Simulated scan of single mutants.
Amino acid sequence: MTVARQRSEWSDRQEIHDVVLRYCRGIDRLDFDLVRSAYHPGAIDHHTGFEGTVEEFLAWVEPKLRARLGGTMHIVGNHLVELYGDVAIAETYGTFVHWGEPADDPRVNFTSGARYVDHMTCRDGRWAISERWAVREWTRSEAGRFVAKEGDGPTGRRDEHDPLILLQRRIAPAKPENGR
Results as ranks from 00 to 15, higher is better:
G100S: 09
F110T: 04
V20E: 01
A134S: 14
W138G: 03
A90G: 14
R66V: 05
I171E: 15
F96K: 00
A174Y: 08
R22N: 10
Q168T: 06
H17I: 13
V117E: 09
L164N: 06
E62R: 11
E9I: 11
I16L: 11
E137T: 15
A172K: 07
H17F: 11
L80A: 12
Y84C: 02
V35R: 01
L34F: 04
G125V: 00
G71E: 00
H47L: 11
G153Y: 06
A114K: 01
A88W: 02
T139E: 04
A143D: 01
E56N: 07
A4N: 04
D118E: 15
T48G: 00
W133N: 12
Q14T: 15
Q6S: 08
V87K: 14
L164D: 07
T53V: 13
T155K: 08
M120V: 11
L21G: 03
V61P: 07
T53P: 15
T139R: 14
S37V: 00
H47A: 14
Q6A: 10
R5S: 09
I16Q: 00
G77A: 04
D162M: 05
A43K: 02
F96C: 13
H46V: 06
E15R: 01
V35N: 03
H98S: 02
L83G: 10
P102I: 01
T95P: 05
G144L: 07
R68L: 14
E177Y: 07
E91G: 08
H119F: 05
A67V: 03
H17S: 14
W138V: 12
V87W: 10
D118H: 11
A172R: 14
E51K: 09
R140Y: 14
A38N: 01
Y39L: 08
N178K: 08
D124F: 01
S141C: 04
G26Y: 01
R126Q: 08
D124I: 02
V117G: 02
R22C: 05
R123L: 06
V61A: 14
P173D: 08
R170G: 15
V81L: 09
L69E: 12
A43E: 02
A88V: 05
T92S: 13
G144C: 03
G42I: 00
G94A: 15
E177N: 07
I165K: 06
D45G: 05
W133Y: 12
V35H: 05
G144N: 04
G100A: 11
P176W: 11
E56C: 04
D86G: 09
W138N: 04
V87Y: 10
L166F: 02
